[in-house]
C-alpha cells in the first residue's frame, strides 16, 4: 500500500553499520547480490556483463570517502543500501501501490506485480537505494532479506540478512531498532549512531556508527629524557643484571 502504515510499526527491523570497522571489502555487496539474484526480487539482471559498460542491479554498494584534510583526515568505507525509512517518500509517491512499508516490521518492499516502472520512487529516495531492473521493467530494492530473516527452512542462526552473515569484520548488525533494549539499539546509543541526511526528515531506520577518532593513548615516552642518556652508559647498567636461561 502506498500510504504509510497508520501506526508506527511495533518492530522496526534494520541494519546498523559500523563505519569504524568497515574495511570496504564488498562482501556485503556481493553476498547481497548473490542471495537476492535468486530471492523474492530475482533476478537482479546484469546487462553487458562482459562488455564495455557492465551494469547490473545491486541492493548494496560500497563507496569510499575521505573526510578531513591531509593526514588529519580519515578514509571511510561506506556501504549504502535501503534505510527502511519511517517517513518513506519512496512509498507515498508510488502511484500504483507497488511500493509499500510493512506494518509489522517496517520493511519497505516493492510488489513487482503492481509496479509500472515509472521510477518516481527512485527519484523520491534521497539515498539512491532503489534500482531499476531495465530488463524486467520494474523497480527493485533491498528487501532486508525478508526471505531469509523469517525463513523457517533455514536454521535459526541463519535467519539474518545475507550481508550481515557475510561481513568478515562484523561491521554490520541486524535487529529491531524500535526495541530500546535490543543489541542494535544499545549499540546505537553507546556509539552515537546517526541518520543519513537527517535534514530531509525521512527518519531512516538503519543507523551508521561514526568512525572513532581515537586520541593517542597516554604513553610514557621511553626516551623522555631523550638524548640525555649516553648510549655507552647503557652497557654499564646492563652488565649487572642477571637473567635466567
Amino acid at each position: 500500500m502506498t500510504s504509510l502504515p497508520d501506526q508506527p510499526a511495533q518492530r522496526r527491523l534494520g541494519l546498523v553499520i559500523d563505519l569504524d570497522t568497515c574495511v570496504g571489502c564488498h562482501a556485503c555487496a556481493t553476498s547481497c547480490k548473490e542471495w537476492n539474484m535468486g530471492g523474492v526480487a530475482a533476478p537482479l539482471t546484469d546487462l553487458d556483463p562482459y562488455g564495455a559498460k557492465p551494469d547490473g542491479v545491486w541492493f548494496n554498494r560500497v563507496h569510499g570517502f575521505e573526510a578531513g584534510e591531509g593526514g588529519a583526515g580519515r578514509t571511510v568505507h561506506f556501504p549504502r543500501s535501503c534505510l527502511h525509512c519511517e517517513n518513506a517518500a519512496c512509498v507515498t509517491v508510488c502511484p500504483t501501490g507497488a511500493s509499500y512499508k510493512r506494518a509489522e516490521d517496517g520493511i519497505v518492499l516493492v510488489n513487482e506485480d503492481l509496479c509500472i516502472g515509472c521510477k518516481l520512487c527512485s527519484w523520491a529516495c534521497p539515498y539512491g537505494a532503489r534500482e531499476f531492473d531495465e530488463a524486467e521493467g520494474v523497480m527493485k530494492k533491498c528487501t532486508l532479506c525478508v526471505d531469509r530473516i523469517y525463513n523457517e527452512t533455514l536454521a535459526e542462526a541463519d535467519r539474518k540478512p545475507a550481508c550481515v552473515m557475510a561481513c568478515p569484520t562484523g561491521a554490520r548488525h541486524f535487529g529491531d531498532l524500535a526495541d530500546e533494549g535490543s543489541d542494535v539499539s544499545r549499540l546505537v546509543a553507546a556509539r552515537g549512531g546517526f541518520d543519513l541526511m537527517p535534514e530531509l526528515d525521512y527518519r531512516p531506520t538503519n543507523k551508521y556508527l561514526p568512525p572513532r577518532m581515537n586520541a593517542s593513548p597516554a604513553a610514557v615516552a621511553p626516551t623522555a629524557s631523550g638524548e640525555a642518556i649516553r648510549p655507552e652508559s647503557k652497557f654499564l647498567q646492563w652488565v649487572d643484571r642477571l637473567f635466567s636461561r
Binding site: L19, G24, H26, A29, A52, K53, P54, D55, G56, V57, W58, R61, V62, H63, G64, F65, E66, A67, G68, E69, A72, G73, R74, T75, V76, F78, R80, S122, P126, Y127, G128, E131, F132, E134, F194, D195, L196, M197, P198, E199, Y208, P210, P211, M213
Partner: peptide, 24 residues
C-alpha cells in the same frame, strides 16, 4: 550530511562502488 562524516571535515569521494555507469 549524506555520509554523516562532517564532524571529521570536508568529505570527498575516493572510490566509487562501481567503475561504470549504473541506473542511479
Amino acid at each position: 550530511s549524506a555520509t554523516g562524516l562532517g564532524a571529521i571535515g570536508r568529505v570527498r569521494l575516493l572510490e566509487r562502488p562501481h567503475t561504470e555507469e549504473n541506473y542511479l
